[in-house]
Design a protein around this nucleic acid. Sequence first.
DNA 1: CGGACCATGTAAGCGGTTACATGATTCT
DNA 2: AGAATCATGTAACCGCTTACATGGTCCG
Lengths: 220, 220
Amino acid sequence: MSLRFALLALLTAQPMTGYDLAKSFHSSVGHVWNAPDSQIYPELRRMETGGLIEATAVARNTQATHATKRIYHITATGEQAFRAWMATPIEYTRERDPAHLRAAYFEWADQEAVRKQLLAHVGHWNELREQWQGQFGAIRDRTHPIFAQRLLISPESEWARITAYKLFAYEGLIARAEQEIDWAERGLRLVDELEPQPREDGGGRLGEDRGTIPGEEVDR
Amino acid sequence: MSLRFALLALLTAQPMTGYDLAKSFHSSVGHVWNAPDSQIYPELRRMETGGLIEATAVARNTQATHATKRIYHITATGEQAFRAWMATPIEYTRERDPAHLRAAYFEWADQEAVRKQLLAHVGHWNELREQWQGQFGAIRDRTHPIFAQRLLISPESEWARITAYKLFAYEGLIARAEQEIDWAERGLRLVDELEPQPREDGGGRLGEDRGTIPGEEVDR
DNA sequence: CGGACCATGTAAGCGGTTACATGATTCT
DNA sequence: AGAATCATGTAACCGCTTACATGGTCCG
C-alpha cells in the first residue's frame, strides 16, 4: 500500500507522465521505498480508477497507437488521502533480515566465506550510504531538482519545515548505514580473533598471513 | 527462500515436529526472520518433497485421523544445502522503509501526528530492542534452551565460535534498534524546534508563534 | 467436563519479482 | 540509418498475509 502514497507524494510536487514519475521515483522517494517500473504503471492505473489521480491525455506529434502520453495529476481526493495516510500509524513489517540471519549461523561457514559475507555487507551499505549522502547533500544545497520544485510551489514560510524533515529522514538512513558498516567491521575483527591465521605452513614465520595458498581452491 | 534455511538452521540442533519447530522458531530465529505458522507448515512439506528433511510419523496414544505427529529431521542433503546457502551471497532486498518514507514527508502532517509517529517508532524499536536484549542475555548466560541444545550436540572446541557469532548477530540488531530510537528522539526534538509550544495555557507567553492562525487555509 | 495446549493445516488474495513486449520520438 | 530514450505496459509466478478450520490430548 505504501507504493501508492510514495507516488502520491511525488505528484504533490507536480503533474507528470508515468514515465517521468518512474524516473523521478528512482531518484528520490525510491531511495526510501523502491519499486520497479512494472509495478508503478499498473499502480497508477489503479490510483486513477480510485480517483486519487487523474490523467490528461496529451497527443504527441503524430497520431498512432502509442501517440499519446498521459499526464497524471493528483486530485483533491488524492491529496486528502495522502494527508490521512500521513496521520495513520506506520505498519511495521515482520523482522526479516537476511544478513543477521546468516550471521547468527556463521559457525556453519568457513572463515573465508564469513569474511566474504561481511565484506559484501560493508559494500552494500556503503553504496546505500553514498546514495543517501548524495540525496542529503543535494537537498541541503537545494540542487535537487524535485526538491527544488517542491520548494517552488510552497510558501517560503514552509521551506524550513520541508527541508528539515527531509534532511532528518536521510540523516536517519545514513546513520543506519554507518551502523551496519560498523557492525560488519566488528565482525571482520571477530573472525580474526576466533580463527587466527588458519594455517602457517613454514616454520617460524609469524605475522605472515597470506590470503590464499598456491593450489588452493579459491571458489567454493 | 530464506524461511527454508531458517527452518533448516533450527533442525540442525534437533529433530522436531512442525508444531515444536514453529514454537522454537518464534522464540529464536524468528527474531531475525519471522514467519507465521501458516507459512511454516507448507514450507516443511515442500522441504520434505525436496529431500532436505524427512519425517518419521509417530503414533499418538489413540489411532484416529489426527493421531500421528510427524517428527522432522534434517537429511545429509539438507545439511549440505544449508552449508551451501551459508556461502551464497546475501540477496539484499529493495529499500522499503515505511517510517523513513513518512518522515521525508512529515511537513504534510501536523505536529501532533508527527510526534505520535515518532513516539510509535520509539515504542516499536524499544520492544524489539528488549526482545533482542533478552536473546542476547540468554545466549550469553547459556540459559537459552535451543542454544543450550545446540552446544550439547557440538564439540566443546566449537562453543566459543558458536556463541560469539550469535552474540555478534544480536549485538548488531540491538545497535540498530538503539540507532532507530536515537533517530526518533532527535526527531521529537526537531518537532519542538520547528513548531515551538503550540499552546501553553498559562501566562508569560513570549515567543508566541502558534502553528496556525484562525481562519487561515491550512492546505496548499 | 472443560479449557489449555498439541498438531496441522487450507483458502483467498495481494504485493512484489523477473522477464519480456512494443512502438514512437529524438538525436547524431 | 541507428541508437538512445520516451512511453507504457503484460504475464507468470511466488512469497507472504490474514483469516479460518479441525481435531486430539492432557490436566485439574
